[in-house]
Every structure is written in C-alpha cells, then in structure tokens.
Write a protein that binds this DNA or RNA. Structure first.
Length: 204
DNA sequence: GAATAGATTGTCT
DNA sequence: GACAATCTATTCT
C-alpha cells in the first residue's frame, strides 16, 4: 500500500483538531502475513492531565502510558479488559501526554487476512474493524506495536481526502462513565453514514 | 433494536 | 483485590 504519510507536524495541531482531521485518513499495517489497511471513520481525543478519562490524568506516568509522553506521531497501544488491544496516535510535543484513540475503520486492503484474524469467514466487511478492539485484531496490532513511528514504520498513517463537515458528527466518548463531568465532553468524532462506526447508528 | 451478562488479565492501590 | 478508553452471545421487545 502506497500513499503520502501524514507528516509529524500534523500531530502537533491541537489534539481535537487532529482527531477531527484523522477521519478519512488510512491506517496501514504491513506484516509477514500480508498488508491490511482501512479508512478511519471513528476516533476519540484524550487530553492530558486535566482529562479525567485519559490515562495521563493528573500527570500519571507509568510503564504502560510512557509512550504518551514521547514524540508525536507514534503509536500508543495498550491492553484492556483482559483480552483487547486499543491503538492511539500520540499528539503534541514530548512531555505533553495527549492522544487520539482510533475506534473504527472501513476495510480497504487485506479483507481476507482480516477475516482470518477475526475468525469471521462470513458476514459483512463493515463488521471487521468496528470498534477499537476488533480493528486491532483485524490489523494484527498488539503491544509489540507500542511506540512505533507512524510516519515511517510498518504501521503508518496515510493522508486521504478530507471528510466534509456535513458527513461527520461529534458525540460524547464511549466507555468512560467513570470520568464524571469529563465523560460528557463531545470528543468523539464519527463519519455518521458509515456502518463501521461502533455503537448505535447516529442520525445525520 | 435494546439491554444485559460473561469472558479474562494487566495495572494500580 | 478492584477494575478497565471492549466484544459477543443471548434474551428480551
């Protein structure tokens, strides 16, 4: 899969802007088993020490979230609920722990390999990367990918046509009820017409 | 279509 | 020992 990689400066824009701009871009993963790629249709922004829903809330820093404090344009991959991986894009300069969680993709390349990894021989393609855990499974993303450079590595983000504002929607983030008032912030961005978006369908 | 339960383990208190 | 930036199957309506 070829195409222009998003440059490092892309990830230095305000994190909410990066999240919105990631809609329509392409996430690619080259592995020995083959290449898989998809178009981003759902993301969430996580904003550093003041954001109670973020792993970096209160300036928390540990082996798990260390990559959030590293350079922009790198992958932060973590393991949740004892069985799923989630992939984020680190934003902002070193020392500023903000990131965008990639929550859903529309499959573009390697559908057969995605089906094999997901154990879904049948069914619609839009179910293959619907949700942050399933897209990591479909693309073969694990903690081995934590800290990878998304500008040059085998796991990377390519530019793509912008999605018009009327095709997008903003909502509260998913699965962060514990974050109190911060849970209501409209920091999730979706391409509302896409069936690959997780959760209930969103009205245009 | 919506609501709920169960799976399963790394991480932090 | 509690809980998590989740997913799927099942049981409703």
């Amino acid at each position: 899969m070829t195409g222009r990689a998003l440059p490092t400066r892309f990830y230095l824009q305000p994190t909410l802007r990066v999240a919105r701009a990631l809609l329509g871009k392409t996430l690619v993963h080259d592995t020995p088993a083959g290449t898989t790629a998809g178009r981003i249709v759902e993301v969430e922004a996580y904003r550093g020490p003041e954001d109670r829903a973020a792993h970096s809330y209160g300036g928390h820093r540990s082996a798990r979230n260390e990559v959030m404090y590293g350079p922009p344009g790198h992958a932060y991959v973590y393991f949740v609920y004892g069985m799923h991986h989630c992939v984020n894009v680190v934003c902002q300069a070193r020392g500023v722990p903000e990131a965008v969680l990639i929550r859903a993709l529309e499959p573009l390349v390697g559908e057969a390999l995605m089906r094999q990894r997901r154990g879904l021989a049948d069914g619609p393609a839009w179910r293959l990367c619907r949700g942050p855990g399933t897209l990591c499974q479909a693309l073969g993303i694990t903690r081995a990918e934590n800290g990878r450079d998304l500008v040059r590595g085998s796991l990377r983000l390519l530019d793509g046509p912008p999605v018009p504002a009327r095709a997008t929607a903003r909502t509260a983030r998913i699965g962060v009820a514990y974050a109190g008032a911060h849970a209501a912030r409209p920091w999730r961005f979706v391409v509302h017409a896409s069936r690959a978006v997780s959760g209930p369908r969103i009205r245009p």
